[in-house]
Design a protein around this nucleic acid. Sequence first.
DNA 1: CACAAGGTTGACGTTAACGTAAACGTCATC
DNA 2: GATGACGTTTACGTTAACGTCAACCTTGTG
Lengths: 134, 134
Amino acid sequence: MDRTYTITELAREFGITTRTIRFYEDRQLLQPTREGTKRVYSRGDRTRLKLVLRGKRLGWPLDEIREMINMYDPHGGEVLQLTTMIEKLKANRDTLLQQQRDIQQSLSELDQLERNCLDQLASMTPSPLAAANS
Amino acid sequence: MDRTYTITELAREFGITTRTIRFYEDRQLLQPTREGTKRVYSRGDRTRLKLVLRGKRLGWPLDEIREMINMYDPHGGEVLQLTTMIEKLKANRDTLLQQQRDIQQSLSELDQLERNCLDQLASMTPSPLAAANS
DNA sequence: CACAAGGTTGACGTTAACGTAAACGTCATC
DNA sequence: GATGACGTTTACGTTAACGTCAACCTTGTG
């Protein structure tokens, strides 16, 4: 039930290198326990790593990802002032909403562009002769 | 009707430095004309810059942004093979859709978290005495 | 026991995306 | 004619996010 993972398992599962995982630890994004000298990752660690990668896909710097994650998961020590936290949540949401709008725009422009391409392709392929109509 | 812009105008409008704009030119994202030695930016250049910044907000590297933009705006020379182009569009859309999912997840988790915070706040503020109930 | 597979800690290298500074040109204006 | 606002190029500095060794420990397995 409380499964654990080795560093290479996680690396393989998420398609990253062990170096990257250790780097994230150095940057305080993960803090696995040890069994002797070896790192042991819990389910929670795995989840945190997943969140890190999601943040990365959205282009966030590791520092902000760490703040983000620590809010989601107070993991013991630092219980932020609630109001401060709500402030940050708001800022975070604004960023996300902006990204959402950006994506929406990009997608619709991309659709438009693709339609043009397909049309143009369609007007070329049916008959080679059509190409002569310049 | 065919308004033009100076480098500092654009910098101020978009909240970036002139250094950044020149850097984008160096990386082939912009190619303004010259009036003597000075750069002159057209409406199209301004639009391209806007697209660049949008890409940045989504965390894309400048190289991909350039490819993206060049697809949107063949601007003369390089007419890509249509099929190649459609391939790239597809890949691009996949990335965008992934980002969209990531954002959706993030937003909903964030909402959940905020609700918790607000609840907790609500249970504290009404009466200071309530805090004694540990 | 040898040794291969996986783990560890340094420490230096690399790339992207600018920042920062130097050294200079060009006007309008005081 | 000096000053200041705005522009230019060239070049080195910086930060983030890893990659790439090297040199070493620790196990189970044939």
